[in-house]
Design a protein around this nucleic acid. Structure first.
Length: 433
RNA sequence: UGGGGCGUGGUCCAAUCGGUAGGACGCUGCACUGUUAAUGCAGACGGUGGAGGUUCGAAUCCUCCCGCCCCAGCCA
């Protein structure tokens, strides 16, 4: 008897197959049972009659939620079944029955956030959570596929680092190395600038750690970031790469995850609108738009959640804001040659209030200017000596950006909170499970 | 780190002015041949986050502590 995954079941109508999975729910109606099985790819309803399949009926009657099973039966199209197909069960092998004395804790009812996060290791079994993780998988696969197609080589950055990318305040210290302090990385960028000078076009994809006391729906303590970096590239090249990357991720998810998107109730039309080019607005113009909208943010200040929402709500696709005041950007940002008070940096704001999903720009290539900026910021020059080597030996214009995977996936899936788009979220108040 | 909010059976909620802490789900049993988080009937288990205080009496009022949620800042 062939094993068939539930997402493939419609293609096996009329055949006898075996499904391996878990009992998602059981409705009993006299001498008829309606068990629902899930296997991680979907949910299918079974039907068992006492008269026709007494042994299967006895095996399933009273079986507890989430007990593991292998069930055999004939697939039949039936409009009364959720999903359009059901399994006429003829054989049941119970792999493990959950005892009634200790039932599965997550009901098919509403639960509170705290309870669900305490049971995250079980919560991910629910169809909605599984659909989100399915989209996460496809998004990351598509992102890596796109980067590879564009000629970018994966050169992952270290997780343990000796110093900060932009200061030490937000770093997690690790008490392990004997002689000097070690920290968990908050960005792979500095190392990517080195590998970009080695291989030309590179990227890394891995976790980043921020010891910020952020407790909003857009923040995690541990999140994943995709960071490209390219030698001889300028800010415009990176804006084009980012919009191509994001558009590719979206179209790949729309193409390969119709089931999960339907489970999530995501409006696919809004995703289909996301195609290049994305609107590009200079910071100066963004300030004007804000002022016209009644927001009085003065020139020279960075944007907060309110400002991001005003700007992004004007468009049906992500919006790129570029050329920010240099004073509010990182020390390594290349100044605009025409306006030295501006930095050649850009952010991409996702639609629908999901906020900043990309931050990046062009890096300073001049040794003298970089040293000057380090001193202005009171950063320890010796800790950056290898980084300065990149400007000593064959320095070139180069640029890159970081894309926050969880924020991007939260937007693609349409979920309220970023904590649902990573299997085991880490926040300031949660390290378990 | 600031501002706001919430902690009641395993879960989700209710409890009027300070007056015997209750319901639903879940679990058990029975009924039901097309259920859609099935339904109906019956049953069992089980709780006020913690420590003080006020009071004849505290889930309710006060103080402190703990846990969590939301917002801001920071950022992706």
């Amino acid at each position: 008897m062939p094993f068939v995954s539930i997402e493939q079941i419609a293609g096996h109508a009329g055949e006898e197959i075996t499904v391996r999975g878990w009992l998602y729910n059981l409705r009993e109606s006299g001498k008829l049972l309606f068990p629902q099985f899930r296997d991680g790819t979907g949910v299918v309803q079974g039907v068992v009659s006492l008269k026709e399949s007494p042994e299967a009926f006895q095996a399933l009657a009273g079986l507890t939620q989430e007990s593991s099973v292998e069930v055999t039966g004939r697939v039949r199209a039936d409009s009364r079944a959720p999903g359009g197909h059901e399994l006429q069960v003829t054989g049941v092998a119970v792999v493990q029955k959950i005892p009634e004395s200790d039932p599965y804790p997550i009901q098919l009812k509403e639960h509170g956030v705290d309870f669900l996060l305490e049971k995250r290791h079980l919560w991910i079994r629910t169809p909605r959570q599984a659909a989100i993780l399915r989209v996460r998988d496809q998004s990351i696969f598509a992102a890596r596929e796109f980067m590879h197609q564009q000629g970018y080589a994966l050169t992952d950055s270290p997780i343990f680092t000796p110093s900060a990318c932009e200061g030490t305040t937000n770093l997690f210290e690790v008490a392990y190395m004997d002689d000097q302090k070690a920290y968990l990385t908050q960005s792979g960028q500095l190392y990517l600038e080195a590998t970009a000078a080695a291989l030309g076009k590179v990227y890394c994809f891995g976790p980043a750690f921020r010891a910020e006391r952020s407790k909003t729906r857009r923040h995690l303590t541990e999140f994943w970031m995709l960071e490209p970096e390219a030698a001889f590239a300028h800010m415009d090249d990176m804006m084009a790469l980012a919009e191509g990357l994001i558009s590719y991720m979206i179209s790949s998810v729309v193409e390969h995850c119709p089931g999960p998107l339907a489970t999530l109730g995501r409006d696919v039309e809004r995703l289909n609108a996301v195609r290049p080019p994305f609107p590009r607005i200079p910071y100066d113009e963004a300030i004007e738009i804000l002022h016209r909208s009644g927001n009085q943010t003065p020139w020279g200040e960075d944007f907060g959640g309110d400002e991001e929402t005003i700007l992004s709500s004007q468009y049906d696709r992500p919006v790129i804001v570029h050329r920010y005041p240099a004073s509010i950007k990182a020390f390594y940002m290349e100044p605009d040659p025409e306006r030295p008070d501006l930095a050649l940096g850009f952010d991409i704001l996702a639609p629908e209030g999901y906020g900043e999903i990309v931050g990046g720009g062009e890096r300073i290539s001049s040794l003298e200017l970089l040293v000057q900026r380090l001193r202005e910021q009171n950063l320890p020059e010796e800790a950056f000596s290898w980084y300065l080597d990149l400007r000593r030996y064959g320095s070139v214009p180069h640029a890159g950006f970081g894309l926050g995977i969880e924020r991007t996936i939260a937007w693609i899936t349409g979920v309220e909170h970023i904590r649902e788009v990573i299997p085991f979220p880490r926040t300031i108040y949660r390290i378990s499970p």
